[in-house]
């Protein structure tokens, strides 16, 4: 059976890159003693897949990985079990058993489903920027432009392409709370199919770092395999719009939501 795990990555673990996070979870699952399924062959590996890799330096409340298990555990127990194998900076915050795919169809992984992500951007202390009260109005102004042209690096061909952010920049806000109130996502992707399947969500608050200056922004961006927009790209464009230099070290980015569906009809994945 397949289960989706939600986890947070925060504090000093933001310095651990995606490949190492995958190795970390392979070992963590072994430590937890959970009976996970392995692939066949001389070098069997755990059947485990991650959604939307998080860049180094970024923290998150909502990372997903899908596991195939050989044994079923009550959802809450599974979360507790995995949490015992975690180090400071990783926390399992929920899980949900996934319905089996309909005949002849491939299983949908979190990776393939994700279409959208919410980011909190906090100004780190010691990096002067606009006064707190001025920041969001200017950001809203920036977001409301007819077009938001940016230059995006294309890794594969090692080139750049011109892009209009407008259609991938779904919403903005000044803080996580106000943003959540304004743009709630309540629909659940699995509600119809998997109503009966076991699910557990812990009521953990956010793991985002707080800074004394209290200056924050929020953005909802297109994410996933099709049109993945990095929040850094938006920040850079915003700085260009303001006519100030973009300093990547000045901002702490924190992912706090990942959804599927077509904006604005978004659905949760767990």
């Amino acid at each position: 059976m397949n289960v989706r795990i939600r986890f947070a990555k925060y504090s000093s673990m933001k310095f651990i890159g995606h490949l190492d996070v995958m190795r970390y979870f392979q070992k963590a699952v072994r430590r937890s003693g959970i009976n996970i399924a392995y692939s066949q062959g001389y070098h069997p590996h755990q059947i485990m897949s991650f959604a939307a890799p998080l860049g180094v330096g970024i923290t998150s409340d909502t990372e997903f990985m899908d596991l195939e298990l050989k044994e079923s555990y009550p959802a809450k127990k599974l979360v507790e079990c995995l949490n015992e194998a975690m180090t400071e900076g990783f926390s399992i915050t929920g899980c949900r058993y996934l319905p089996d795919p309909e005949n002849g169809r491939k299983r949908e992984t979190a990776m393939s489903l994700i279409t959208c992500a919410d980011y909190l951007v906090s100004l780190k202390d010691g990096y002067p920027f606009l006064p707190k009260d001025e920041l969001y109005p200017r950001f809203a102004e920036f977001a409301a432009q007819e077009q938001i042209p940016v230059t995006k690096e294309v890794k594969k061909s090692n080139s750049e392409k011109e892009l209009d952010l407008k259609s991938f920049f779904y919403a903005s806000g000044s803080s996580m709370d106000t943003f959540r109130a304004a743009y709630p996502v309540t629909a659940d992707y699995y509600e119809a199919a998997g109503a009966g399947l076991d699910r557990y969500i812990s009521g953990t608050p956010t793991f985002a770092d707080c800074y004394e200056n209290g200056t924050t922004l929020v953005m909802r961006l297109s994410a996933g395999s099709a049109n993945n927009i990095k929040p850094e790209l938006v920040l850079e464009a915003f700085c260009a719009y303001l006519g100030v230099e973009y300093n990547p070290f000045a901002w702490q980015i924190h992912r706090f939501g990942m959804y599927t569906g077509e904006n604005p009809k978004l659905m949760t994945l767990i």
């Binding site: 310095f15 190492d20 970390y24 180090t87």
Partner: peptide
């Protein structure tokens, strides 16, 4: 830590 190679060398906190 974000400017140097392999920050994990210096942060501890290992399993």
């Amino acid at each position: 830590l974000l400017s140097i190679d392999k920050p994990a060398r210096y942060i501890g906190g290992e399993v």
